[in-house]
Simulated scan of single mutants.
Amino acid sequence: MSTLRVTVEELTIHEHPHADALELAQVGLYRAVVAKGAYRTGDFAVYIPEQAVLPEELVAELGLTGKLAGSAANRVKAIRLRGELSQGIVCRPRALSGVDLVQAHRDGTDLAAELGIVKWVPPVPISMSGEVKPAPDLLPWIDIENLKRYPAVFPEGEPVAVTEKVHGTACCLTYRAEDDGVLVTSKGLGAQRLALTEDPGNLYWRAVRDHGVDRVAADIAGELGASRVGVYGEVYGDGVQDLGYGADSRRGAPAYAVFDIAVETGGRVRWLDPQELTAVLDGRLPVVPTLFSGPYDARRVIELAEGRETLSGRAVHVREGVVVRPLEDRYSAELGGRAIAKVVGGAYLTRKGGTEYE
């Protein structure tokens, strides 16, 4: 999931093609439906992104009582309004009446705490939970930000790889060469430097053992002279999330596909470039599909986020989205970290009965 930040943004207003009383307010590459005439291009307003959970009084103030997602009808979720995808909420809450919005925009001020907004934490099914232990030396996975919020991450024409984003749950494994140790965790637990105690009933450990991920990580450590290796793969299939890709993870081995690898050599951790990852694995583990490799084109990337999935080879359901990274891993000043971003498909976001376990 992306980092939750509630910020003041400069708006660009577009006509709504199917509604005379509505318009589209653009923030980055996101668009949110707003009442016609409420804002003009160049205005500043607060942007509340998806996955934000709003306090009851703010929901009422914005006239959204009973209209948001979740059991308490207080969570922001992408919806279609008169045929147009609306992601997030554009508003000017009364609580900020004394705030200089232009200055807050310039400063990049995060207003989430001031407005009582928190990030939605998805539920954790029993099969994905378990006993945990401190693991300060594991290599955690990172939150990937959405390209629509940070459109300047990649310059047009930069060589990139666009891979399919698979709807499952991230299994994060760290291998330690010094003691042949293996740490297994989820993305959420890994961020807290917690590892799961091995349990044959745990989904992540099942995937690791059934696919031999630990042994492949050990081989990579030996081949690259690494002291630690992190292997990050998506565990998926029926019984994991609502999109199963034709795989049944309840009766047999959980389906699994690698999406990233990190190695530590000489005390420095680096992420393998997309082509290096494929070469290093050399077919020893499944890898998420690459949809495009070549010069970056924002419009093409957004188009690739839509359509049908390719993982199953049978296009059994909608595609979740895509992940974009440069062919040569680098730092991004825009993100303050690694240059990697995602785009989530509109059809996926607005599907019925979706699950979002982490």
Rank of each mutant, 00 (worst) to 15 (best):
V316M: 10
R284E: 11
G212T: 04
T7S: 10
R215D: 12
P200K: 10
L24Q: 14
R215F: 05
I48K: 00
R308T: 14
A177F: 04
S332M: 06
Q103G: 12
N202M: 05
S71K: 04
P295G: 04
A207N: 05
T169E: 08
T290S: 15
V153T: 13
T109N: 10
C91I: 08
V263L: 07
Y245M: 06
E23D: 13
V34D: 06
G190Q: 09
G83K: 11
R106C: 11
R40A: 15
I13R: 11
A35K: 13
I79G: 02
V33I: 14
G181P: 09
T265I: 15
T185S: 15
G108V: 09
V27P: 00
D214S: 06
K119D: 05
R325G: 07
Y204T: 03
V8G: 11
P254G: 09
D214Y: 01
V99F: 14
F259Y: 12
D214R: 03
P289V: 12
R31S: 12
Y256A: 01
I144T: 01
A305I: 00
Y150G: 01
H14Q: 15
Y348M: 12
R206V: 03
L29F: 03
G28P: 01
V316Q: 08
A19Q: 08
S186Y: 06
A315C: 02
E198G: 00
E164T: 11
P159V: 13
G336L: 08
E10M: 15
G98N: 13
L81W: 11
L281M: 07
K148P: 00
A35F: 03
I13F: 11
R270L: 09
R80P: 06
R284W: 11
Q51W: 14
L11M: 14
L138W: 03
E61G: 00
L81N: 05
I126T: 04
L203D: 05
G244C: 12
D248A: 07
L11T: 14
R82C: 08
A315Y: 07
L194N: 09
E178C: 08
A195D: 04
P122E: 09
V288A: 14
A257N: 02
V280P: 03
S129E: 07
D219M: 08
E156Q: 15
L96A: 13
W205S: 04
P286C: 09
E358P: 06
G244W: 14
D297V: 06
D210K: 12
R330I: 11
G244Y: 09
E276S: 01
E356M: 11
V324Y: 01
D248N: 15
T41G: 12
I79D: 13
E158H: 09
A253Y: 05
G88M: 08
L277H: 00
A247F: 14
D273Q: 04
L281F: 05
L115V: 13
Q275W: 06
A25H: 01
G353Q: 14
V280K: 03
F154I: 10
R228T: 06
T185E: 13
L24D: 07
G244F: 12
E320M: 02
